[in-house]
C-alpha cells in the first residue's frame, strides 16, 4: 500500500503537477508564476537556441522573446495547453525560424526549407572550420556543425532530456520518425568524431 502511495506521489505530484499549476496561474496572469517559469526553463531554452544561432547575443535575445511570447499566448489562448515544456521549445524553434527569415531578407517559400538552406551553408562552414582547426574533441563544435534537424534532436534528447513524445510534439513528427532521427543523428556525431581522430 505504501509502495503504491509512493509511486502515485512520485508520478503525479512531480514536475507535471508543478507545470499544471504554473499553467493555471499563468492563465490567471500571475506575475510570480511567470517568474517561476523563467527560473525553471531559462537555461534550457537558452541552450536550445544557443546551438541554433550564430552568436550568444542572438541566443539571449531570442530566449527573452520566447518567454514574452509564452506569457501572451497562455493568457490569450482558448485551447488547452497540454505540455508547457513542449510549448516553450516549439515557440523557441519558431522564433529561430523567424530570426533567419528576417536575416536572409529574401523572399521565402517555407520556414523549414529556408532554415535548412541557411543552416546547411552555415554548417558546411563550421564543419570545414572543424577540419582545419582539428577541434575534433570539441563536442560543442561538432553539435553546432550538424544538420539542423539532427542537432535539435540531439540537444533535446540528450542535453535537455526531453521524452520522445515531447520531441515529437515540438517537431510535429511521429514518435517513430523522432526515434529514427535521434538514431541517425547519434550515428553522424559518432562518425564525425571517429573521422577526425
Amino acid at each position: 500500500m505504501c509502495n503504491i502511495y509512493a509511486y502515485l506521489s512520485s508520478t503525479i505530484m512531480s514536475l507535471s503537477l508543478k507545470e499544471k499549476l504554473l499553467l493555471v496561474r499563468l492563465k490567471k496572469k500571475d506575475k510570480d508564476a511567470f517568474g517561476e517559469l523563467y527560473d525553471l526553463y531559462v537555461a534550457s531554452i537558452y541552450r536550445f537556441i544557443f546551438f541554433k544561432v550564430p552568436t550568444r547575443q542572438d541566443a539571449e535575445d531570442l530566449t527573452s522573446e520566447t518567454f514574452l511570447k509564452i506569457w501572451n499566448y497562455v493568457a490569450e489562448t482558448q485551447e488547452e495547453v497540454k505540455n508547457l515544456k513542449s510549448l516553450l521549445y516549439t515557440t523557441a524553434r519558431n522564433l529561430v525560424v523567424d530570426f533567419y527569415r528576417k536575416k536572409s531578407q529574401v523572399q521565402l517559400v517555407g520556414d523549414e526549407e529556408t532554415l535548412l538552406k541557411i543552416e546547411d551553408s552555415r554548417q558546411q562552414n563550421i564543419l570545414s572550420q572543424i577540419d582545419i582547426k582539428a577541434e575534433v574533441n570539441n563536442i560543442e563544435e561538432i553539435i553546432k556543425g550538424l544538420k539542423d534537424e539532427y542537432r535539435e534532436v540531439i540537444v533535446m534528447r540528450y542535453v535537455e532530456q526531453l521524452s520522445i513524445t515531447e520531441i515529437a510534439e515540438v517537431l510535429n513528427k511521429s514518435k517513430g520518425s523522432v526515434r529514427v532521427l535521434v538514431h541517425r543523428a547519434l550515428k553522424v556525431v559518432k562518425e564525425t568524431i571517429e573521422k577526425n581522430v
Binding site: 527560473d39 531559462v42 539571449e60 514574452l68 553539435i143
Partner: peptide, 21 residues
C-alpha cells in the same frame, strides 16, 4: 553530449533579463 549542459546563459544577463521581462 550530456556535458553540453554546462553551456549556460550568463548569470548577470539571466538576472537582468528576468527583471526586464
Amino acid at each position: 553530449i550530456k556535458s553540453l549542459k554546462n553551456v549556460k546563459p550568463r548569470s548577470e544577463w539571466q538576472t537582468l533579463n528576468r527583471d526586464f521581462l
